[in-house]
């Protein structure tokens, strides 16, 4: 096991039940995404979506550091963030099927899933588009004095957007309670980070705004958790934003599928060897918290949960076309 968890040596202050919950969350994301892909191949899902497979530890580790009342903003690759923040999988599935009872009443689809009740202020079709929004939400938290924190997810590609620079500087100036989590999965579509960014040292950017910057192994759920916890605590204490980089990898094509012309099969295979779920599972086994039988049982339970969600979505009504214009204004 070349890739044993760095955190094995660390004391992460989480009770066993919480660790097992995190494992299950990662599993739920993985299975959800696998089924979304299958449904697309079967012609049941239309439009576009971006799979999070391989990156599960990033969403789960970071979001576990939040309190239930805290907020997130998500990205075009947002299913993992939604699930980790507590979204209902049946309602997500219904949205992907374009149903009236889905999260966005079938109006938004994969790229716009929002679940304000669970604190998810929305996925985003515009790369970097969520960064100013998260910043504004943090501004509101500060003005309201509600003690809440906003966690803002975006990819490595978003670092090249002007919106990133403007919003992070803005948050730094006003010491807003926001944690910026850059999920560096090595590519923005076909663009590798070392060609799309002037510096691949992602968190060096934090210094330019006077913020702490922390880079972690994004496939190590506990490493992500630890970094996020520190940043969330700091934000909650009123000490301002942090920039975190989670180093990870997307196993699948950029959207739906792609021809992978921009990377090698060997590279993909090498990253699959660092599967965040398998690593965490083995770590929990090592601690005696999980047996092989437990893992299989959990997988079966999650599988059943996803199948139920699919059946639920299938049974739901389509939107009524006469209500097309409903909901544009408040």
């Amino acid at each position: 096991m070349a890739e044993s968890m760095a955190t094995a040596a660390r004391k992460v202050d989480l009770p066993p039940g919480r660790l097992l919950h995190m494992y299950r969350q990662m599993l739920r994301i993985r299975k959800f995404e696998e089924e979304v892909d299958r449904l697309y191949q079967a012609g049941k899902i239309w439009g576009t979506f971006h799979l999070y497979i391989g990156q599960e530890a990033s969403a789960v580790g970071a979001i576990e550091a939040l309190e239930p009342g805290d907020y997130i903003t998500s990205t075009h690759r947002g299913h993992g963030h939604s699930i980790a923040k507590g979204a209902s999988i049946p309602l997500m599935m219904a949205e992907l099927r374009g149903k009236e009872t889905g999260y966005c009443r079938g109006r938004g689809g994969s790229m716009h899933i929002a679940d304000v009740e669970s604190g998810n202020l929305g996925a985003n079709g515009i790369v970097g588009g969520g960064i100013p929004i998260a910043t504004g939400a943090a501004l509101a938290c500060k003005k309201l004095g509600n003690g809440r924190v906003v966690m803002c997810f975006f990819g490595d590609g978003a670092l090249a957007q002007g919106a990133f620079h403007e919003a992070v500087n803005f948050a730094a100036v006003f010491k807003l309670p926001v944690v910026y989590v850059c999920e560096n999965n090595q590519y923005a579509m076909s663009m590798p980070v070392d060609r799309g960014l002037g510096s691949t040292d992602i968190v060096i950017r934090a210094a330019a705004y006077g913020l702490p910057g922390v880079s972690v192994d994004g496939n190590d759920v506990l490493a992500v958790y630890e970094a996020a916890k520190e940043a969330v605590d700091r934000a909650r204490r009123g000490e301002g934003p942090t920039l975190i980089e989670t180093r990870t990898y997307r196993w699948r094509g950029h959207s739906k599928s792609d021809a992978n012309r921009y990377r090698t099969r060997e590279e993909i295979e090498a990253w699959k060897q660092r599967c965040p779920i398998r690593r965490f599972g083995e770590y929990l086994e090592g601690l005696g918290l999980l047996t092989a039988a437990d893992r299989e049982r959990m997988e079966r339970e999650v599988e059943a949960e996803i199948q139920d969600a699919i059946a639920f979505a299938e049974s739901q009504p389509d939107p009524d076309v006469s209500q097309l214009a409903d909901g544009v204004y408040a």
Partner: peptide, 14 residues
């Protein structure tokens, strides 16, 4: 129509 383009294919068409 005066709406953002919706996702659902029937709505989108309309």
């Amino acid at each position: 129509k005066d709406v953002p383009i919706p996702y659902n294919p029937q709505l989108e068409r309309a």
